[in-house]
Design a protein around this nucleic acid. Structure first.
Length: 480
DNA sequence: TGGGGTTAT
DNA sequence: ATAACCC
């Protein structure tokens, strides 16, 4: 039945369908499914591919990523305790430093106190981290196009189809010779007669191949977790920590989720939600599992309530959504104090300059620009304000064609208007952060005009900027 | 806490 | 435009 791709009504075959249409090649299973259900009678739906509703997901988490990138750039630092500094904080550090008591996001003061020999490098410019990060994602995309980024150092990949292909090459007697790569969570014993175990073991081998490729081609080490959904893959990847991998077999799922000491450790339950849950007397995973669904829905809204309660059981039907090229580019700078318009203008110009270079290399054109500020406030945790507006079309067209010089002034002017819209410059102010974001990115030269368009735009594209443009451009025109 | 990102409302 | 989430 699984091979036929017939989905019973009970479990969500829905997002399997999404995954199937997300651009995979047809397989033999598709042909079988069509043959079996082609005339589509009855209440069963025929799914084109990925027929079993059980997926295999790998989560890859690079070890102290920024520190690794720095050690590759500066090999003389290898073996020394190394921290990466942004402003007054050590945002990450290598394992040498961790052994000596340095923790992530520790203040430089505390870190130096704990570990006077600590070497610090400045990591405020993310360029090399970002570039390396995308190389990792692109490498993983060679295994399957279904790769989703999470920050700069984590990726999910759905390898369900790859596993099906490999299993089809094996005779069923050969299943008993499949072995695991890396650790098995809980040291659970493997049942070679259980097809779900076999699939996860093949998944562990693919995870090892992915980690090997990342190491051989980029020199980076990391952890991997293999499981039946993103939540579990992510949780299990952290079990054995530097440079190791772990597979979760279904029988140990509840052990894994109950190994968490607090609901805040469930990815998807953040600071705010955990505080609200705590106010309801919910602090452990089991508290959340057994709490009244109705009350939870009334408290948090049906969407959040249902999602996080499923998470508490280790259930996560969210698909691995291919990230593709970024949706936005931003640059920010934080500081103790900015209290004059000229000071702000200067900082905004610096942020813009970096952004122009990035946007230019990408090749797409931002149609929206946003200015974000953070005001000084003694206690009032986190609050940013923003204003956005369209990028004028004459600026869009100049972007990436020459140096940034003639786009700089008009963009600074626009951003200063946004600035004055948020900040009353006739009154004293105190800002601690400025950020500029380009978003609403579109493929270039897609206006809604017809063939006449090329006469209207003197597209003198003697680009001084050679980006890679490896993503696919939108095929035809879109509205503005 | 830094310098980024995403999606939902 | 903001709020929540992720790293």
């Amino acid at each position: 039945m699984e091979k036929l791709g017939v989905v019973p009504e009970e479990e969500g075959g829905c997002e399997e369908e999404l995954g199937a249409f997300r651009g995979m090649e047809p397989t033999d299973a598709d042909a079988d499914a069509e043959a079996a259900g082609g005339s589509q009678a009855g209440r069963c739906e025929v799914v084109p591919t990925g027929s079993t509703s059980s997926r295999v997901i790998v989560h890859v988490d690079l070890d102290c990523f920024y520190a690794q990138v720095e050690m590759i750039s500066h090999p003389e630092l290898k073996g020394k305790p190394l921290g990466v500094q942004q402003k007054y904080f050590v945002v990450t550090c290598n394992y040498e430093a961790r052994k000596l008591g340095v923790k992530k996001l520790m203040s430089v003061r505390d870190a130096k106190e704990k570990c006077p020999q600590l070497v610090l490098v400045n990591g405020e410019d993310l360029t090399r981290y970002r570039e390396t990060s995308y190389k990792v994602t692109e490498l993983m995309e060679e295994f399957s196009p279904l790769v989703e980024r999470l920050g700069f150092d984590e990726n999910f990949v759905d390898i369900t189809e790859l596993i099906e292909k490999r299993l089809q090459q094996l005779q069923s007697e050969e299943h008993s010779s499949v072995t695991v790569s890396g650790h098995v969570y809980n040291d659970q014993s493997i049942n070679l007669h259980d097809i779900s175990h076999i699939r996860l073991l093949v998944g562990s081998q693919i995870a090892a191949e992915i980690r090997e490729a990342i190491y051989n081609k980029l020199g980076l080490t990391g952890c991997a977790g293999v499981a039946s959904n993103k939540l579990l893959a992510k949780l299990v990847s952290g079990i054995f920590k530097p440079n190791q991998q772990t597979v979760l077999l279904p029988e140990s799922c509840q052990d894994l989720i109950h190994s968490l000491n607090h609901i805040k450790e469930i990815p998807g339950i953040g600071y705010k939600t955990s505080k609200r849950l705590e106010a309801l007397g919910i602090s452990s995973v089991r508290d959340l599992q057994t709490f009244s669904s109705k009350i939870l829905e009334k408290e948090l809204g049906i969407s959040v309530a249902q999602r996080i309660q499923k998470l508490s059981f280790g259930e996560d039907t969210s698909p691995v959504t291919p990230s593709g090229p970024p949706q936005s580019f931003s640059e920010e700078d934080s500081f103790k104090k900015c209290s004059s318009e000229d000071e702000a203008k200067q900082k905004i110009a610096e942020l813009l300059d970096s952004l122009f270079n990035r946007v230019c290399q990408d090749g797409r054109k931002p149609h929206t620009v946003r200015l974000i500020i953070r005001r000084y406030s003694s206690e009032k945790h986190y609050s940013r304000e923003s204003r956005q507006c369209p990028v004028p079309s004459h600026v869009i067209q100049k972007l990436g064609t020459t140096g940034n010089y003639d786009v700089m002034t008009p963009m600074v002017d626009i951003l200063m208007k946004l600035f004055r819209n948020m900040v009353n410059v006739k009154m004293p102010f105190h800002l601690t952060l400025l950020s500029v974001c380009f978003c609403n990115l579109k493929a270039p030269n897609t206006t809604k005009k017809g063939p006449i368009d090329c006469y209207l735009t003197p597209s003198l594209s003697t680009t001084s900027c050679s980006g890679k443009r490896s993503f696919k451009m939108k095929d035809t025109r879109t509205e503005d």
